[in-house]
Amino acid sequence: MLTPPIPVFDGHNDVLLRLRRSGGEDPAGRFLDGEEAGHIDLPRARTGGLAGGLCAIYVPSPGTAKDANGDFPTPDQADALNETLAMARLLFDIEARSQGAVTVCRSAADIRRSMEIGSFAAVFHIEGAEAIAADLDALYVLHQAGLRTLGPVWSRPNVFAYGVPFRYPSSPDIGPGLTEAGRDLIRACNELKIMIDLSHMNEAGFWEIARISDAPLVASHSNVHALCQHSRNLTDRQLDAIRDTGGLVGINFGVLFLRDDGIKDANTSLDLLVRHAAYVADRIGIDHVALGSDFDGTTIPADMKDVTGLPRLLDALRRHGFGDQELKKIAHENWISVLERSWGE
């Protein structure tokens, strides 16, 4: 028998992109009313106990072909900005039409208040800063619009850094680190109190950010390289650095980042997901592990199916030996804590 859902605040979902690209009418209405497609909508979030999370705005690469280096092509800045604004408008449209059932949160207090009243606590997040030019003008405007967390790269190069390509088996030590514009971006994010997301950052970029940034190091949806040798996963040394800054790792539900064979197979046990969470907790402490599902952005274990399967994951964590207080930390308390410290409010 499943335990009652503990509220979950999740570090990463791609529902805005799914709604944007699905081609159906009234994407905001489909999120609010529910549908069969994808992993998340508001009714299923309520069923699964998903109380909120970082709602990513990600602009896909143009076309499907990789370049000569095996990298995904990078969108033009103007095109990326147009797509980013369209998805941001969709997020705000969802909030406006929800009659209080969805709140775009700009502070930790907003998140706590939303969770208390049962309003879905959405945080405006950008994954891959292609919409922002080196002059950073768009960063300041987007921050005024509600942007509170940002990943400088997805897994492709841009004006700021070289995103880690998808490779297995591979170290994350692929390619150069930040550009000068990238270093300016990190300093500006610190100034604006925008949380910097290290998922999709290669190792050189990770260590440059660790040297420059005065904020906790956070990887919103990344796993353990010692357990799965995917380039997207974190080495033990990176995990230790995250701990030393009071940061956090959001465990990614994607099977590609869980399995030790690199196979994209939905018939993957939730026990593997638990194994990654337990490794992080054992190595760097329970206060530094959370959830970063990647719902609507990756293939997750079939046993979970969608967001309604979150109670199954919490029960699997409980069976492993995590107690109620530890589960609350993993489910939402650690995320709210690191965001409060990153945002300074």
Rank of each mutant, 00 (worst) to 15 (best):
L139W: 01
L139E: 00
Y140R: 15
V141G: 09
L142I: 00
H143A: 02
H143V: 01
G146E: 00
L147E: 00
L147T: 02
L147C: 04
R148L: 07
T149Q: 04
T149G: 00
T149D: 04
L150I: 07
L150N: 07
G151H: 01
P152D: 10
V153N: 13
V153G: 08
V153W: 07
V153E: 05
W154T: 01
W154P: 10
S155Y: 04
R156W: 01
R156D: 03
P157H: 05
P157W: 05
N158S: 02
V159Y: 08
V159D: 11
F160K: 02
A161V: 04
Y162L: 02
G163L: 13
G163K: 03
G163Q: 08
R167K: 15
Y168K: 05
P169I: 02
P169H: 05
S170Q: 11
S170V: 12
S171V: 06
S171W: 10
P172N: 10
D173V: 06
P176D: 15
P176C: 02
P176F: 11
G177C: 02
T179Y: 00
E180P: 03
E180H: 06
E180G: 04
E180T: 10
A181M: 14
G182K: 05
G182D: 06
R183V: 14
L185P: 07
L185N: 03
L185R: 06
I186E: 09
R187Q: 12
A188Q: 13
C189L: 10
C189R: 13
I194M: 10
I194T: 13
I194L: 05
L198H: 15
L198K: 14
H200L: 12
M201Y: 00
N202Y: 09
N202F: 13
A204M: 15
A204W: 15
A204G: 14
G205W: 00
F206C: 03
W207I: 12
W207H: 15
E208P: 14
E208K: 12
E208V: 13
I209Y: 11
I209K: 11
A210I: 00
A210T: 05
A210V: 04
